[in-house]
Amino acid sequence: MSWYAMLVLAVGAERVAELAVARRNARWSLARGGVESGRGHYPVMTLLHTGLLAGCLYEVWAGHRPFVPALGWPMLAVVVAAQGLRWWCVATLGRRWNTRVIVLPGLPLVTRGPYRWLRHPNYVAVVAEGAALPLVHSAWITALVFTTGNAVLLATRIRCEEAALTAAAAEAGGGVPA
């Protein structure tokens, strides 16, 4: 097995770990009155992210994509940085982090960690990883298809998340979240 296949499988294992954390956090949030939004786009998101991993492997194999060091090494650094940012988000949000949109009414927005500077830092990690992981091994079609699909999905996802946060803040009497 090539080192690139092992990298893609490691990212896949990281996704499985994310899902385990998300399931645990979802149970915690729902037990405390959390409200889930955006169920309709979640299966599309799951399919898109699974397609990213499969596309990376398939395109490199079927398209005989080379490893180009001038592109591959910087993209690998972006993938590693994206993982760091993602897990910083997970640690900062704690039990409130999820792959689903689940909001606990009455809780203030988190404004520490990467959320001090960015409204949706986890999505920055997703965008960076989705473009960089395929390009580590010149899988430019996968990078293009994922990035395009992800842009459409994130537009929907962020609208959904913002609406859920705004509704929760209004319900708590806090108005629109900052």
Results as ranks from 00 to 15, higher is better:
Leu9Ser: 12
Val11Ile: 15
Ala13Asp: 09
Ala17Met: 13
Asn25Asp: 10
Ala26Ile: 01
Leu30Pro: 02
Leu30Trp: 01
Leu30Lys: 08
Gly34Asn: 00
Ser37Trp: 14
Gly38Leu: 01
Arg39Lys: 13
His41Asn: 10
Leu48Lys: 02
Leu52Ile: 07
Gly55Lys: 00
Gly55Asp: 09
Leu57Lys: 07
Tyr58Leu: 15
Tyr58Gly: 15
Val60Gln: 14
Ala62Phe: 05
Gly63Arg: 03
Phe67Ile: 01
Ala70Val: 15
Val80Leu: 15
Ala81Pro: 05
Trp87Asn: 06
Trp88Lys: 04
Val90Glu: 07
Thr92Met: 03
Thr92Lys: 03
Arg95Tyr: 02
Trp97Met: 03
Asn98Thr: 03
Arg100Cys: 00
Ile102Thr: 04
Pro105Lys: 01
Gly106Tyr: 13
Pro108Thr: 07
Val110Ser: 00
Val110Ala: 07
Arg112Asp: 14
Pro114Cys: 03
Arg116Asp: 11
His120Val: 06
Asn122His: 06
Val127Gln: 02
Ala128Gly: 13
Glu129Leu: 10
Ala132His: 01
Ala132Phe: 03
Pro134Thr: 05
Ser138Thr: 12
Ser138Cys: 11
Ala139Tyr: 02
Ala139Lys: 01
Ile141Gly: 03
Ala143His: 08
Leu144Lys: 00
Phe146Tyr: 13
Gly149Gln: 09
Gly149Leu: 05
Asn150Ala: 10
Ala151Thr: 13
Val152His: 05
Leu154Thr: 09
Ala155Glu: 13
Ala155Val: 12
Thr156Met: 13
Arg157Asp: 12
Cys160Phe: 03
Glu161Asn: 10
Glu161Gln: 11
Glu162Phe: 05
Leu165Ile: 12
Leu165His: 12
Ala170Val: 15
Ala172Ile: 11
Pro177Cys: 14
